[in-house]
Amino acid sequence: MTPLRKGVAGIVAVGLTVATAALSRVPLSFSADDQGQLRLSWRVEGVTAEACRTLPEEELARLPAHMRNPKACIGVIASYHLQVTVDGATAVQDTIRPPGARGDRPITVLRELPLAPGRHRVSVRFDALLPEGVPAPEGVTSMAWEGAVDVGRGDVVLLTLDDRARNLVRQERPVLP
């Protein structure tokens, strides 16, 4: 092998190694259009409301003796209505049903909405949908947050649930314990 060929072989080997290293650190942009983001993230136990009625005598008489309970109740697991408006315009309008085969799992919300940099007026409502005439059960049936947010390029504004206040709050940067 001639010295020239050896030299070329060395240069090619170095070039390929550097190319391999370079391809393992290619800068890619993940911030679409330099926007910010409104992120909604929370988890609530779904509320269960009971709709009860008193059975008339004739209806009770048709039942076997061991099933004659004068009060019949049906549990209603509530769905929730999520509405988000940004600067007065509706950004999200959605009904969220409890997950699970029986619809009895906790409800989780995870939405990410792009926001242009600047100040925005944001309003979020999260209301349990209860059948008419059903009294409001215990638990979180209605949550809301409204306020102005200043969003910078790449900033994430996180709205989440404050467990103690049982309402939505704007989450600041998490702090390591």
Partner: peptide, 30 residues
Amino acid sequence: LFTAVSVLWPVGMAPEADLLRIPGEVPVDL
């Protein structure tokens, strides 16, 4: 060869993950 490139052109540290920031330009291993 790979050791030489590692010594001369070591991998740096990208900023720590910040869950409340959308990552901008990120070095990605293709």
